[in-house]
């Protein structure tokens, strides 16, 4: 089980939750489980080709998954995955924010 943190604008599509527990061995699998549970989330996260939309940033324990292995990045129980829209394309100081 990992914890997925949901940004405010997406909470209405995720039953109002700010955190959701999901299973999966990779970031992609965790997102798959999330969007299977909440299908209306899918179009906000993926484009028509099934790729993550370019402004959607995912941070695994504060690290941008694009710097890791993308959606193939492996996850382990207790990890935290954060979904954040880029503002001005930035990852800014996400890692510094607590």
């Amino acid at each position: 089980m990992i914890t997925l943190r949901i940004p405010t604008p997406l909470r209405p599509y995720a039953g109002g939750a700010n955190e959701i527990q999901v299973n999966g061995e990779t970031v992609g699998a965790a997102l798959e489980e999330l969007t299977n549970t909440y299908p209306t989330l899918r179009k906000h996260l993926y484009n028509e080709y099934g790729e993550l939309r370019t402004f959607v940033n995912l941070y695994l324990n504060d690290e941008d998954i694009r710097q890791l292995q993308g959606t193939a990045t492996r996850i382990k129980p207790g990890d935290r995955l954060m979904i954040i829209p880029s503002i001005a394309g930035g990852k800014g100081q996400v890692a510094q924010w607590k």
Binding site: N57, I84, P85, S86, I87, A88, G89, G90, K91, G92, Q93, V94, Q96, W97
Partner: peptide, 10 residues
């Protein structure tokens, strides 16, 4: 300012 503002801005 939101922590995800771009590094240029910050």
């Amino acid at each position: 300012i939101p922590a995800n503002a771009s590094s240029e801005r910050i």
